[in-house]
Design a protein around this nucleic acid. Structure first.
Lengths: 83, 83
DNA sequence: TGCATATATACCCGTTAGGGTATATATGAA
DNA sequence: TTCATATATACCCTAACGGGTATATATGCA
């Protein structure tokens, strides 16, 4: 399962979906990484205002890998003024 | 170019690397997304204490896509007690 | 090496993240 | 529908995020 994330809400949905897929409650997930359930709830519903630390912690319990990839850039980009 | 991120420092290095690859200064990157240069610096050097919002903003100017992927899980997992 | 530019960080400030605790509300199964 | 459990959120509190401004330090090129 792979999620492409561009917005906070997409991130939140992905986190929630992954957690449920694992059959974990927010409370269980939180306990495993030393966070409070409310922090998990915040990450799932208001990710933009949460810290990267809490995100990375949750990712580790959800067994999710975070990858950053350069967006497809065809060769030389919009500098091509001729058509 | 793809970066696999598990720690704040890995994230910071990836962000910095991507920015330099694009030939952007922190000041230019910051200006493009309405952040201060110091915020870019913080993301590159102390990512754990920065917000997910600032991260997503920087990713957009760096043209980086964030992907979450389930770690390789062979079928049925450690529930297999027989050997 | 000198110097222009880039970067990290200091200080001030207002807002807020998340710990702690509690509970109203939502969810899901029987 | 009922009810046990899960979740979202309220309130308190302290540390800290990031805006704003300034500058010490680092970087890179000639």
């Amino acid at each position: 399962m792979t999620y492409l994330i561009a917005t906070p809400s997409q991130l939140g949905l992905a986190l929630k979906s992954a957690r449920k897929t694992l059959g974990l409650t927010q409370t269980e997930a939180a306990a495993r990484v030393g966070l409070l359930p409310k922090t998990i709830s915040a990450l799932e519903n208001h990710a933009e205002s949460c810290s990267i630390e809490s995100l990375l912690r949750l990712l580790s319990v959800l067994g999710l890998e975070l990858t950053l990839t350069s967006k497809a850039r065809s060769t030389s980009t919009p500098d091509q003024k001729g058509w």
